[in-house]
Design a protein around this nucleic acid. Structure first.
Length: 498
RNA sequence: GGCGCUGUAGCCAAGUGGUAAGGCAGAGGUCUGCAAAACCUCCACCACCGGUUCGAGUCCGGUCAGCGCCUCCA
């Protein structure tokens, strides 16, 4: 899998006037990074205890596109996304077996084997979807010391307390708790079971450190007990470690807004740190109007969908809706995406074919159309990363180019501008047009053999056609079709594709 | 119950008060030996009822329907 090259256009202004929707302020605001020219962003990554599904794909692709767009506009981006490999509890009642351990028992593996198994499968899926790897990919189990240190700071400042070997955040000591999600403490239900409630000063206090039960496998030494860190503390500790005080963007799924992100903020700020300056949340992926989720069981894993559709089609479908909108998935949506995406990529491929043998010169009228579409695309992305609008610009460009290509030869300079527009906007920014299909998997040697054979076959067919022996010509076309090869007759002769 | 969101054509999906982007599917056409591809044309009383306004999908109020969070979740 080749990672796309991000080209930096030094002529671009360092301030591209990007606006984004900040969940904390509940409105679109101008994006101004803390350090001019640089962006630090953190994305809550997966808990590696099962295969990723399409909901995870929406989140990963959404923030990947944001990262790519920021890079496109000239920022240097440090993208940190964690791996949660500590087995947190099955529910927030602070009781019971952890998710990793449960899975390990099921698969007859050590908890860390489970974590690594799904760690690798996660990146296999993300690579297929052309999601760029994080700049830094910290694992929670590798940062126990940092988490303990943050907990100590919180105890020292009077915002956390130890109880029976566990440590809890004291929500009543931090009035700002709830500011991200707009909740008041009194509104919240109490979800904790009786036994644990006794350990807490307030039922809404959440765990920073949990004392391990004897049967709990993942455990570390700490000043309070042999145990494991709470659910929320890793993200506070690791984002601050790798991005520093007051980093720019914190992202995640809308369903993490409360309690996870709320807790992250409280932990960091109560300890005296400056936390994220902008909060961005992607909306959910739905199926039949309902959120796709592990617990509902209505999920499709990325692995399963890739058996049916090209990963670029999946990605195209995801960027066809806005990251803050719900994305509805069904068979018709996938089929629609497959057909639409094919039209875009076929045009790009036709341009690249023509470039092999293009006349010198350029078409100034077409050049200005291309330039207008590039501007249109970039304006859409500047406006809170409006990918559906940006995709519409690509379709506009595609129609204009196909009209010109149908009309006759197009000059090399113009073809190169067109190709660069596709590769830069559709490729580098939206992450499309990565060659991952069967065509890319054919070895180079085989490809040249196939090319030679196809030249021969098409020449024979052309002879039949010239002699008006259409039955024979059509039979050749049908036979090739059954082998997965499409033959199309054009003004410039026949062409084929797999 | 509390907080919040959404309802735009058969499907997916944008939309910053000024006569509804885009894609897919569908219909007709151009091109072609026929196909295919491409291109052109056509295809929406914006859930409902009030209100504000010269003007509302867009703002306000209400009704209905659906969804999310408040428990693990992306």
């Amino acid at each position: 899998m080749t990672q796309p090259t991000i080209t930096q256009d030094t002529a671009r202004q360092p301030n591209p006037n990007i606006t984004l929707y900040d969940t904390m302020q509940r409105q679109k605001v101008p994006f101004v990074p803390g350090t001019p020219g640089y962006v630090g962003m953190y994305l809550c990554g997966p808990t590696v205890y099962s295969d990723a599904h399409l909901g995870h794909a929406k989140k990963e692709v959404a923030f990947d596109v944001i990262r790519r767009a920021l890079t496109h506009f000239g920022y240097q981006v440090r993208y940190v996304s964690n791996i949660t490999d500590v087995g947190h509890l099955l529910n927030d009642a602070d009781e019971g077996e952890d998710k990793l351990q449960a899975r390990a028992r099921l698969e007859q593996l050590e908890p860390m084997e489970v974590a690594d198994k799904y760690f690798w499968s996660f990146f296999r899926d993300m690579d297929a979807l052309n999601v760029l790897r994080p700049s830094i990919n910290p694992r929670a189990t590798g940062h126990i010391q940092e988490q303990i240190k943050l907990i100590e700071e919180l105890i020292e400042k009077g915002h956390a307390y130890e109880s029976a070997g566990s440590v809890y955040f004291d929500v009543r000591s931090w009035p700002e708790y709830g500011k991200l999600s707009g909740r008041k403490l009194d509104d919240q239900e109490e979800g904790t079971r009786e036994a644990v409630r006794d350990e807490k000063r307030d039922p809404r206090d959440f765990a920073l450190w949990k004392k391990a039960e004897p049967e709990h496998l993942m455990r570390w030494d700490s000043p309070w007990s042999v145990g494991f860190p709470g659910w929320h503390i890793e993200c506070s500790a690791m984002s601050l470690k790798y991005l520093g005080e007051g980093f720019d963007i914190h992202g995640g799924g809308l369903d993490l807004q409360f309690p996870h992100h709320e807790a992250e903020i409280a932990q960091a700020e109560a300890a005296g740190h400056h936390f994220a300056r902008y909060w961005m949340h992607n909306n959910m992926l739905t199926i039949g109007g309902e959120k796709m989720s592990k617990s509902k069981g209505n999920f499709t894993t990325i692995q399963d969908i890739l058996k049916k559709y090209d990963p670029m089609v999946v990605r195209f479908l995801l960027v066809s809706s806005h990251y803050r909108s719900v994305t509805e998935m069904n068979e018709e949506a996938f089929a629609s995406a497959a057909n639409g995406y094919r039209r875009l990529s076929e045009t790009l491929h036709e341009i690249e074919r023509r470039l092999k043998d293009a006349p010198a010169g350029s078409d100034t009228a077409l050049d200005s159309k291309i330039a207008a579409r590039v501007t249109e695309f970039e304006d859409a992305m500047r406006d809170d990363f409006n990918t559906p609008k940006a995709v519409a610009s690509l379709f506009g460009l595609t129609g204009e180019l196909n009209t010109a290509l149908n009309a006759g030869p197009v000059g090399r300079d113009t073809l190169e501008r067109a190709r660069d527009a596709y590769r830069s906007l559709g490729g580098d920014v939206l992450g499309l047009f990565a060659e991952t299909g069967s065509a890319a998997s054919v070895a180079q040697d085989d490809a040249s053999v196939i090319d030679a054979l196809m030249d021969l076959v098409l020449k024979a067919r052309q002879n039949y056609r010239l002699q008006k022996q259409y039955a024979e010509a059509d039979e050749l076309r049908e036979t090739l079709g059954k082998a997965g090869i499409t033959v199309e007759d054009t003004k410039d002769g026949a062409r084929w594709k797999r």
